[in-house]
Amino acid sequence: MRAARSAVAIALALLVPASAIAADPDATNPTCPKQLNWSTYRQMQFSVDTSSGQRVLKAEGQLDEDVPERLKEALAANAPIDEIWIRSPGGSARAGNAAGRIIREASLPTRVPAGWACFSACNFMFMGGPIRYVDAGAHFVVHMFTHVTDKDAIRAEAGRDADSAAALIGEIEQDSALLASEDNDFLIRMGVSRKLLTDVMYRQQAISGDDDRSTRRCLTAEETVKYNVANAQ
């Protein structure tokens, strides 16, 4: 079965245009191409594809709070499923973790196919697979999570009421610490190296700065293996 899946992966890679694999680099995020194919669906869509000879559940689009429940429904309605293919720009971090746990409970392999991109919360949904493929030409894209996206709003809050701003920052810090703990626990349970967090994710800029505007990092094929993000080929 694994040999058949590898053959499918190779066939898919051959079908992807060279431009989709060897894309021009992004000047702001130089480890990534300018264009990342992570789907424009505002809510993750689930569909079944049998063109590869397997029953593949394609999960495409943003992760919102409803994704875990809708994933359960899609798996039940379309059983049996052989593999899950994912492309997403991310979304709710905790929904990504919950979706990953559902995939692990179902013991379904996950794949980021050639030409597709999996970013942010999508990383954790993908890592739920006990067998994980990041195909040649696929992009596994990480960043440092943040609950603060608008620095001007924080400055404005501080200007109006220093005590309110301090309380808001305290809440953000507490929730960030909890999320970091949850992420560590998740990686341990999924068999992914926690160094993915400490060596890569947590070293990225949380918010674009004046000197360094890079906020995302595309892992190399070697790094996906090093950190056990991809554990099959």
Rank of each mutant, 00 (worst) to 15 (best):
R2L: 08
A4C: 11
R5I: 10
S6V: 15
A9P: 01
I10N: 14
A13S: 13
V16D: 03
P17V: 06
P17R: 04
A23D: 06
A23E: 09
P25I: 09
D26E: 12
D26T: 10
T28N: 03
P30M: 06
P30L: 15
T31V: 14
T31R: 10
P33W: 01
K34R: 01
L36P: 04
N37T: 11
N37F: 09
T40K: 11
Q43H: 15
Q43I: 10
Q43P: 12
Q45W: 05
S47T: 11
V48T: 08
T50K: 10
T50A: 13
S51R: 08
S52G: 05
Q54T: 10
K58L: 12
A59K: 03
G61Y: 03
L63T: 04
E65Q: 09
V67N: 04
E69Y: 08
R70P: 12
R70C: 11
L71D: 00
K72I: 11
A76F: 06
A77E: 13
N78Y: 07
D82Y: 13
I86G: 02
P89T: 03
N97M: 15
G100A: 03
I103C: 07
I103W: 06
S107F: 14
L108H: 05
L108C: 05
A114K: 00
A114W: 00
A114V: 02
G115N: 02
G115L: 02
W116I: 02
C118T: 05
S120E: 01
F126N: 09
G128P: 08
G128N: 05
D135P: 00
A136P: 12
A138F: 01
A138E: 01
H139K: 15
V142W: 05
V142T: 13
V142K: 10
H143L: 08
M144C: 15
M144S: 12
T149F: 11
K151S: 08
K151F: 15
A153D: 00
A153S: 00
R155Q: 11
A156L: 04
A158V: 07
G159V: 08
D161R: 04
D161A: 04
D163Y: 06
S164A: 14
A166V: 07
A167E: 09
L168A: 05
I169W: 05
E171Q: 11
E171K: 14
I172Y: 04
E173Y: 11
Q174F: 10
Q174C: 07
D175G: 14
S176N: 09
E182K: 08
N184S: 13
D185S: 06
I188K: 14
R189M: 13
M190L: 04
G191Y: 03
G191V: 08
L197Y: 01
L197M: 06
L197V: 05
D199K: 00
V200M: 02
V200A: 01
Y202V: 04
Q205A: 07
Q205C: 12
Q205M: 09
I207G: 11
D212I: 14
S214N: 08
E222Y: 05
E223D: 10
E223R: 10
E223N: 09
K226I: 06
Y227V: 07
V229E: 00
A232M: 01
